[in-house]
């Protein structure tokens, strides 16, 4: 596959990784002492394109509750929707890449 497909694959990997962190945040919304986890999206994407890996970070600037937990469910709901849309876009792009290759094969055979 070409460069675009590879980038898209990395992008989808990153979005699903972020989705995992959002799932963890939501599951631990009532766990005392739990701190919200996220990825620095741009930095992680750059490092993954260069063959590195993404590192989760603790999100700063969120309001901490009395039990030491700082999960903001509204923030997580926003990220949930955002991730779904990002993944949707990437999967449609991959699909169109595959269709291009398929049509190249088929037109050649005709």
């Amino acid at each position: 596959m070409d460069g675009i497909s590879t980038s898209l694959e990395r992008y989808m990997d990153l979005v699903s990784m972020r989705q995992k962190l959002v799932s963890s945040n939501i599951a631990n919304a009532d766990t005392p002492g739990y701190k919200t986890q996220d990825l620095d999206f741009q930095a992680s994407f750059q490092s993954m394109l260069d063959g590195g890996s993404a590192r989760p970070i603790e999100v700063q600037g969120l309001e901490t509750k009395n039990d030491g937990n700082n999960v903001d469910l509204d923030r997580e709901a926003r990220l949930l929707a955002e991730n779904a849309l990002r993944f949707n876009i990437a999967s449609n792009l991959v699909k169109s890449q595959i269709q291009k290759i398929r049509s190249a094969i088929k037109e050649g055979a005709a």
Binding site: S16, Q19, V22, S23, I26, A27, E76, A77, A84, F87
Partner: peptide
């Protein structure tokens, strides 16, 4: 909180 987990699960399912 249960509903939030269900929403997260259905989002992952769609992905």
């Amino acid at each position: 909180s249960y509903q939030a987990n269900v929403a997260a699960m259905s989002a992952v399912k769609d992905m």
